[in-house]
Design a binder for these strands. Sequence first.
DNA 1: CGGCCGCTTGAATACCGTCAATTATAGTGG
DNA 2: CCACTATAATTGACGGTATTCAAGCGGCCG
Lengths: 251, 251
Amino acid sequence: MATYLIRKLEQFTQLSSEDKQKLERAAAAKVRVVRPREDIIREGDKPRQVNLILDGWACRYKVLEDGRRQIVGFLVPGDVCDIRMFILKQIDHSMGALTPVRVAEIPSDTLLDVIDTSPRLTRAMWWNSLVEEAISREWTTSLGQREAIERLSHLFCELYFRLKAVGLTENGQGRKSFEFPVTQDQLADATGMSTVHVNRTLQLMREQELIIWKGKTVTIPDLEALMSVAMFNANYLHLDRDGHELDANEP
Amino acid sequence: MATYLIRKLEQFTQLSSEDKQKLERAAAAKVRVVRPREDIIREGDKPRQVNLILDGWACRYKVLEDGRRQIVGFLVPGDVCDIRMFILKQIDHSMGALTPVRVAEIPSDTLLDVIDTSPRLTRAMWWNSLVEEAISREWTTSLGQREAIERLSHLFCELYFRLKAVGLTENGQGRKSFEFPVTQDQLADATGMSTVHVNRTLQLMREQELIIWKGKTVTIPDLEALMSVAMFNANYLHLDRDGHELDANEP
DNA sequence: CGGCCGCTTGAATACCGTCAATTATAGTGG
DNA sequence: CCACTATAATTGACGGTATTCAAGCGGCCG
């Protein structure tokens, strides 16, 4: 159940089988299914438990008084939505399902117990938080400095690397692809662009063979080229096993 | 020395005198002075210790390959730059001084000891991280959805509330003010606008009496009005003592 | 097969960026 | 104390990127 989370954390350090079992047990407790367009949790709610995305896509978003909406991050399998947020009276942003989503509802205490009794897991979860913060800063940078085509390219790069880390990409004859069940409207809300401009920029990207997007599958024919357009530097995702000295010593 | 940090944390929960002494002792260890335009820490560096801003203004920023720069957050007295970042091989963004800055260099272990031996401080520092993340999301929202005048207004609101929390604002006859030693160039880098447009938007804001900016002092004649233009909702800063049930029981 | 949702297109326009030059302010040294 | 210099703020003109509005197309699902 917690396979994706485990895979992700192992980008930082190799977990022990005990670590993994603990996570599996915690995640197996209670599973909720959220339908597309429904919220997993809504701004103003009192946080109750930790939500772990088992399957499907969701997003974090904020809504302004006048209805303008900004998606501030995508949530994919393995993402933990709101660890430690239970200390707040109310949550400050919403999380909504983009596809049918299976969410593990883990009592905060349970998860903290699991994490805090293993120094390795403690560090791995710190790492996870640090990466999330870095992603958020990168979004700010994209929205502030990158123009349309760079911004979209950067987002596709981010998602490719994140999905690769949890094993949700394919790699056929050098062309990398992944499921991308997001509409152009949602892409517009995420990049701070109008839908029309997203559409036109995507056409440009297809012409330049930066991406192929058919149905719900995105293919990247030439990752180097896409990264170059995006000025993408993967360092901020910290996928190079920064915590290898903590690796569990198992066969 | 750690006065501002203590004041900030007490927006979440009342600390005990022991908590405060521990923080004071940790922050007194080693103090470094960084001059304007110098970096406190640079992207790619190996994080060595935790940096606490004692005095002065700094910012977090990212630089793209072609030199474009985005400021992704302001750092003011009481802000902790990089707690827990020492587990990473290299840091993913830079922090630069905007004014002369006094920084307390706290060994990571020292700070973790202090924090982890007091459940109250543990929670208070969680809260601090959650607020920083929320601020980052709000910047993304501003850059994505708010137009120029709203964006600048929102930033002034954020800074007013943050500075008020650490006691760095004045309140003369209903007009709120604070030191704001930031140039229009830097403001442009922070809001993702050109300097020219920042300048013109500020003129507009002065005409509408949303702000008065003389020398290095910003005055807000009518906070309600500014908040309204910015569509500012202070909830995300969580300044309403969410952790009051942890309050230390002291006179 | 009809309807809805998402994608696409065109035209007009607004917002904001760039370039380049000028004015103001502050810090420095004679 | 004042000239000198660097930095910061301001202005005008122009162009480009992106938004808005509105309409048409197309595929998927009941």
